[in-house]
Design a protein around this nucleic acid. Structure first.
Lengths: 337, 337
DNA sequence: CTTTAGTATCAAACCGTTTCGATATGACCC
DNA sequence: GGGTCATATCGAAACGGTTTGATACTAAAG
């Protein structure tokens, strides 16, 4: 690979002149500039960003940590952020946690060793030890989707509480009283918020939540499937099922179908998050969608502000809470008589 | 950020000793090693990979170029490759082409400036100019999924020709004669192979392909939808539709539904690639699946061999062609009488 | 007691850049 | 002719590491 020295030799100037000419930082005669550019083309020079970064003390790399690359939510998040960054020389180092919270620390440490300029992450862990770690990290971090309690970091999410609340209100308006809720692990920030939204709406409607109607399925379609099989086989079954993410909604629908029930005639199902191909899933599931593009836009904007060291209220954490959108499909109907 | 100098000062040794101790490359007394390690912890030292890479002349970064991060195929490909790499210090710089072939060169150049150790990519372009560029690139490249004609690079894919062939054979066995094919842009390597597989199977069965039954929909669900609307509205309509990717199969199914036809009673539909949530799409679409895990495993293995400079047949391109798998759903049936 | 050999440590050179301070050149003015 | 000022160029010092060759010390061998 050609270095700046090769260019200098080829153009008959010193390496400092090459640097000045190429970066436009300093007076260079028109003639020299032309000679340098010719030399660059001749020896096929492309500046070594690692060396530039080392010298400048800042890198053009942004770390991105995804909870689960398989989930289309993260694919779209990455795609949109990547698009925002194109135009700058920044690129994304992407790491996948594969839903393993224990990989989180190792991944962050590795990103730090790579001296990324910043980190955009959808955290999995939410414990004081992790919060302490994040508060002592010395690169800008923007959290997306999920918060870490006690961490003083920019945070972009959608109103998860409001999301389940909207769905529950919708089901209640349809006349449902016996609504089952399939949630995630309550240790997760998002799962907790969603559960709270459900409970708030139920309380608001003066409805009792039966304990066995509130189950945790860990965001997995398989677990949700089993829970729904059990719920729907009991004598006192729910008339509506609210699943706290897209995977679990699919699992619930499958279980309902397999038991011979029809949705929405026998039981209503509602989910959260975009179900890819939702237009073709029969019946189309009623969901609350997160505005992924908005989340991505704000996250990358805030990140670049931090990276460029622009005037940002020092030490102050910013939050952006986007409004989710109720998308009514065909999976919900009034409860059977 | 603490540097190796801080560690040296804190431990009361020279920086070279710290380096030798930390990398285990050279004799260091047990006592010194302990002091160095204590100092590392005390000043929170984490080695600057950019500096290490610069000095060692090799980087721990692998570039990954995706055709379209929104498509779950790429999400799973990335996830699996990332998993293969975990354990080494290597990380992936991921770039998304967003289906724009014209971003390809810029992206590759940027990756080169970052001095990645290698590039795993699913190319979009397939023209001589691009092949020439790739042949002169000076980092190891492994192509995945799609080939670039005339490029001497490792290439991992699945047998796209065989895939459509299998699906066509299956439809023919069911008794179909009038089969429509919805393909992608023929300039794309994969699209061409898939079309050829279809034609080969049709020829083998001594079946004529009517020109208007062979359409290109550019891998988009919307275009496929329109084409199918047109095809199914004509007096002489096909009894089966073979769509050359997952998006288009969904579009076709939607069109068939919207026209009031039933699948598979009135018309059979077959697709290619995993349809996420395929288990819930009604009817479950018969597809040919690519073994993504296998592709990812071979691609990352070959990449790491090149990166480590292991004995690889010099200048020789390797190819791995994985066998696709026919997954029979409920979207195909014998043609109506 | 001098060699020899091995062990532990260090100083200095280097990787490919940027940047600062110095130098050379010419133009301009008094 | 001497001083001032831009303008163009360059040498050298960093950035944070690794690696090589030299050095000092100790112990064993002759």
């Amino acid at each position: 690979m050609a270095t700046i020295r090769d260019v200098a030799r080829h153009a008959g100037v010193s390496i400092s002149t090459v640097s000045l000419a190429l970066n436009g930082t300093g007076p260079v005669s028109e003639e020299t500039r032309a000679r340098v550019e010719a030399a660059v083309a001749a020896v096929r020079y492309s500046p070594n960003l690692m060396a530039q970064n080392l010298k400048r003390g800042q890198s053009k790399l942004i770390g991105m940590v995804l909870g689960d690359a398989g989930n289309p939510f993260f694919g779209r998040l990455f795609g949109t952020i990547d698009r925002q960054l194109s135009g700058s020389e920044h690129m994304l180092i992407v790491a996948n946690l594969d839903s393993h919270p224990d990989r989180e620390l190792r991944t962050l440490n590795l990103l730090k060793r790579h001296r990324v300029a910043g980190i955009i992450m959808t955290p999995l862990r939410n414990d004081p030890e992790f919060a302490a770690y994040l508060n002592e990290i010395d690169v800008p971090v923007v959290l997306v989707d999920q918060d870490v309690d006690g961490a003083y970091l920019d945070f972009v999410t959608s109103d998860h509480h409001r999301g389940t609340e909207m769905l529950t209100e919708y089901l209640v308006r349809l006349g449902h009283r016996r609504i089952a809720y399939i949630g995630g692990q309550e240790s997760m920030w998002v799962a907790k918020r969603r559960l709270e939204g459900f409970r708030a709406a139920m309380a608001e409607a003066n409805l009792q939540v039966e304990p066995e109607f509130e189950v945790a399925a860990d965001y997995s379609a398989e677990l949700a499937y089993e829970h729904v099989i059990r719920l729907m086989s009991a004598p006192e079954r729910p008339t509506a099922i609210l699943a706290a993410n897209n995977y679990m909604a699919i699992g619930a629908l499958q279980a309902v179908n397999d038991l011979g029930f029809r949705c929405p005639d026998d039981v209503s199902i509602a989910g959260i998050d975009v179900v890819p191909w939702s237009s073709i899933v029969m019946p189309r599931i009623t969901t609350v969608e997160q505005p992924i593009e908005e989340l991505a836009r704000v996250a990358s904007l805030w990140m670049m502000e931090r990276v460029r060291g622009e005037a940002v209220p020092e030490g102050e954490r910013r939050r952006h809470i986007a409004e989710p959108k109720l998308v009514i499909g065909h999976s919900c109907a009034p409860p059977p008589k």
